[in-house]
Amino acid sequence: MARYFFDIHDGSFRLDEDGLECADFDAVRREAKRALPAIAGEILPEDGDHLTLTVRVRNDRHETVYTATLMFNGLIVPSQE
Rank of each mutant, 00 (worst) to 15 (best):
A68F: 08
T64D: 08
D10E: 08
E17W: 01
E21M: 03
E31H: 15
F13H: 14
P78L: 09
D16S: 01
C22M: 13
E42S: 08
Q80C: 04
P37G: 01
G48K: 13
D49L: 08
P78M: 06
Y66D: 12
L53G: 02
E21W: 02
E81Y: 03
G41N: 12
D47S: 09
V28S: 06
L70Q: 08
T67L: 09
T67E: 15
I8E: 06
D26V: 10
A40Q: 12
N73T: 08
I39F: 05
E46R: 11
A32C: 07
N73V: 05
M71I: 13
A23V: 15
L51M: 13
D47V: 01
T52M: 06
R30P: 02
Y4E: 07
F72I: 09
T64E: 12
D60K: 06
E46N: 07
A32I: 00
I76W: 01
F13K: 12
D16N: 02
E81L: 07
I39Y: 10
P45C: 07
F72V: 14
H62F: 14
A38R: 14
P37D: 01
E17M: 08
L53Q: 01
C22P: 02
I43H: 01
Y4L: 03
E21N: 03
T64V: 15
G11R: 06
L15V: 14
Y4W: 03
D18R: 10
P37I: 04
S79P: 05
D7F: 01
V77R: 04
A38H: 10
L51S: 03
P37E: 01
A2W: 08
I8P: 03
M1V: 09
L36C: 06
L20A: 09
K33D: 12
E17N: 06
V57K: 03
D60C: 02
H9I: 12
N73P: 01
R3D: 10
R3T: 13
R34A: 10
A2N: 15
